[in-house]
Nucleic acid binder design. Structure first.
Length: 110
DNA sequence: GTGGTGACGACAC
DNA sequence: GGTGTCGCCACCA
């Protein structure tokens, strides 16, 4: 188990997010066993930009369902992608976040 | 080598 | 209940 694996695990989980679903940094961190390492998940996302295949990081939001990393993706890109999946996004905030929330810890049955 | 910061979250006061 | 602070681990200056 290396730190690189931690990042890879993050990418793996993010890629497993179904169409029209979103998750949070904390949920992924919790699934990986480091609930308080949500920041690392965010950093992993930063690195995800130069990962292949491209990681659907636009499906990863903060605990409030806000598009915290929109600026890193591109202005309006993240929101547009989510809307394309049928997710309503208003003011950089996902509506019915709970409904679209995909918890790897539950869905993948840790 | 040390200090500060970051796409966050939880707990303490 | 709102605000503040700490934790987590890696990267950059």
């Amino acid at each position: 188990m290396t730190k690189a694996d931690f990042f890879e695990q993050v990418y793996q989980v993010v890629r497993l997010i179904p169409f029209g679903r979103v998750t949070s940094y904390g949920a992924i961190a919790s699934y990986l066993g480091s609930a308080s390492s949500a920041r690392m998940v965010g950093w992993a996302m930063n690195n995800a930009h130069h990962q292949e295949p491209k990681v659907p990081a636009h499906r990863v939001l903060n605990r409030f369902g806000a598009l915290s990393g929109q600026a890193h993706f591109g202005p309006g890109v993240m929101q547009k992608l989510l809307e394309e999946e049928g997710i309503m996004v208003i003011d950089n905030q996902v509506q019915h976040f709970e409904k679209h929330f995909w918890d790897p810890r539950k869905e993948l049955e840790l």
